[in-house]
């Protein structure tokens, strides 16, 4: 919005809300990146740090919620303002879930390190991770700039993640079918990790929907 509010504090409040979301997004992005790194080279200290980070993310989630609540009480926002106030509550929720998935990924890294892992599958997971990180980054940019087109692009990318996930499951099944390998546990864990990334993609996609809703007031949940 190029027009500023008559009440200057209103703009500041909205800006702060946005800043918290971006802060949260950045943390979560790092969480995902770091958790992915844990899959190949496990580091218990790093895992603890990631788990610790999740608490910060949860704290931010609460702060966003409180700020939004206060803003509604004080300013009674309407139209685009209302969506700019309500969307962060949902976006923060999505980000918090992404953080949970990152946490879960990092935890699974602990189990994976006990046995040898299938490198091809791991590579596919890394690919997925890169993809969702890209989506997450883009959707945060889209949110910052109210960029509906970028948000639409993110929503389209979700399909790629889904495809990657499906391919991974297929290859795991193939491996399990073809050989009686001893690392079936790690394969299943990797499938679950893959599912985490697939969910992260979904959450990023949801955020993209919220970005679209803020600008247009149109709820895409029922469509695409």
């Amino acid at each position: 919005m190029e027009n500023t509010h008559i009440v200057k504090k209103f703009d500041k409040n909205l800006d702060k809300l946005k800043a918290r979301i971006l802060e949260m997004g950045e943390l979560v992005l790092h969480q995902v990146e770091d958790a992915t790194a844990m899959l190949g080279a496990f580091d218990p200290v790093e895992v603890d740090r990631i788990l610790q980070l999740d608490l910060t993310v949860n704290g931010l989630h609460k702060e966003v919620h409180d700020r939004a609540e206060l803003l509604i009480t004080r300013r009674q926002p309407l139209a685009v303002d209302l969506r700019q106030t309500l969307a962060p509550i949902n976006i923060a929720g999505e980000l918090e879930r992404i953080g949970d998935h990152a946490k879960s990924t990092a935890k699974r890294g602990r189990i994976l390190c006990r046995s040898s892992t299938e490198e091809t599958v791991l590579e596919m997971i890394r690919q997925m991770s890169t993809k969702v990180q890209e989506m997450l980054f883009d959707v945060l940019i889209a949110y910052t700039n109210d960029d509906i087109e970028l948000a639409a692009k993110v929503r389209m990318q979700d399909k790629e993640v889904d495809t990657l996930n499906k391919n991974l499951v297929k290859s795991v099944i193939n491996i399990l079918d073809s050989q009686a390998s001893g690392n079936s546990e790690s394969l299943i864990q990797l499938t679950l990790v893959s599912r985490n990334f697939e969910r992260i993609g979904d959450h990023a996609c949801n955020i993209a929907r919220y970005v679209h809703q803020i600008s247009t007031g149109e709820d895409l949940k029922a469509s695409i």
């Binding site: 919005m1 027009n3 500023t4 509010h5 008559i6 209103f10 685009v80």
Partner: peptide, 13 residues
């Protein structure tokens, strides 16, 4: 209309 938007959200139109 942007004028409506500005009015109901309390913006300087």
């Amino acid at each position: 209309d942007e004028r409506t938007q500005n009015y109901i959200t309390g913006r300087i139109g």
